[in-house]
Design a protein around this nucleic acid. Structure first.
Lengths: 234, 234
DNA sequence: TAGTGGTCTAGACCACCAG
DNA sequence: TGGTGGTCTAGACCACTAT
């Protein structure tokens, strides 16, 4: 009557969720073992395993061999922010996307960047300014450093085509590790000029450092136009 | 020689990842079916299924019955922001956590709130001001509305104990849906006073609306002290 | 050391949906 | 309508770790 697909494990997840919420299994307590639960629900242990595994991935339970399955104390249900390329973000607003490379030059690494990328000697870098537009309105200003030692091809890349730097990078050098940061700051002179906004306007700045198997790939600082909102649902 | 735990599905994930990166299966193309892959890797279909399912959950593939498994065009590897309670965040900085309820009163719903919570008639609300401290420094100012129709117990809750409002709410009325938003704005007078910062200082403001099975539960606006950074790694 | 979760297998049925 | 993924089962071996 109620089931779309035969899918016990979803129902079991629901039931377990309810018990977590109604106090049957309070925070810090241990759930019965998989075998016991399998008997209770009249299903295979595999099915219980999947339900519990997913709940653990969602942060509600923690599981250890021999110890058992424990109810997490701080139900910090993790929020998943989808971070699509700016292009997608703009296009999903129904606006026309366009980008412009305002600067492209070789530089040495500023000292702070070595720290950010965990690498004492970065060598030569390609330094880029790009502006991303939504319907010809500046939407994001991006400052980017690309480590040429890791991505030598970047030196002769013109970025004149359809691929923005981040898209091009993803093609030639995928990443394995990322660190993302968000802060609210005052727009500095450069950011204000590129975005066409007053100096010191509050802006949401994202910083993204990426590595490929330990090698630093790129660091980007993305400054969003005032009013920009990051939204997520779960 | 190389395996810790017998766990093919992890190895298979790795291999598939490599093939996604080296162009064997370009964006937009279709992978072989599960059965075919199972033969290639010499394992059960279940094992392939798990590997592909997880990669799809991570946003790299999309799967449809009959159609098959497709490589996603925009490899927008989703970033997962863990949003632990402020308490945890503060304590993990090695600081001492404390909160203070500065205001607690009954109000009617402001009009904009009905819109935010998708509910034309919210009835009476409990309106709270709380300040969260790290080592006695204001760390976050939180403005919260609790829908009494959905959470009647809140009316007589004093929040004088150890549980901050969000923690208490989680105990008595879990949520099923959340909408999270982040923006950079200027601190208004109230925020500036509570945080002890100058007016108009740029602040990172998070807004969180939660529902339980369609019923609006609460809306919170969290204003972080200047300099606050949201960080995530993946 | 013994109990618990982690993973694999081989086979099965079914829902979905593109052609 | 048939092929593909989604899920379940029953049984098995093993790795981890609390005691």
């Amino acid at each position: 009557m109620a089931n779309d697909t035969r899918s016990n494990y979803r129902d079991i997840k629901e039931i377990i969720l309810e018990r977590l919420q109604d106090g049957t299994w309070p925070a810090g307590s241990y759930l019965p073992g998989e075998i016991e639960l399998a008997e209770e629900f009249g299903c295979a242990r595999t099915t219980i395993n999947r339900a519990l595994r997913e709940l653990a991935n969602e942060g509600l339970l923690s599981r250890k061999r021999k110890a058992g399955t424990r109810v997490e104390e701080a139900p910090s249900r993790s929020a998943t922010f989808k971070m699509p390329s700016i292009r997608h973000e703009v296009e999903e607003m129904g606006a026309e996307y366009r980008f412009f490379i305002a600067k492209s030059e070789l530089t040495a690494a500023p000292r702070w960047l070595s720290g950010r990328l965990n690498s004492p000697d970065l060598g030569k870098l390609l330094y880029l300014h790009s502006v991303h537009y939504a319907n010809n309105q500046p939407f994001q200003f991006e400052e980017r450093w690309i480590v040429l030692e890791t991505v030598p091809d970047a030196e002769f890349q013109t970025f004149d085509g359809k691929l923005m730097p981040s898209e091009w990078l993803l093609k030639v050098k995928p990443f394995s590790d990322v660190e993302l940061t968000f802060t609210a700051t005052r727009a500095d002179k450069m950011q204000a000029e590129y975005l066409g906004i007053p100096l010191n306007e509050p802006v949401l700045v994202g910083e993204r450092a990426t590595w490929f198997k330990g090698e630093p790939v790129t660091f980007a600082r993305m400054c969003h136009a005032p009013g920009y909102k990051m939204v997520t649902r779960y």
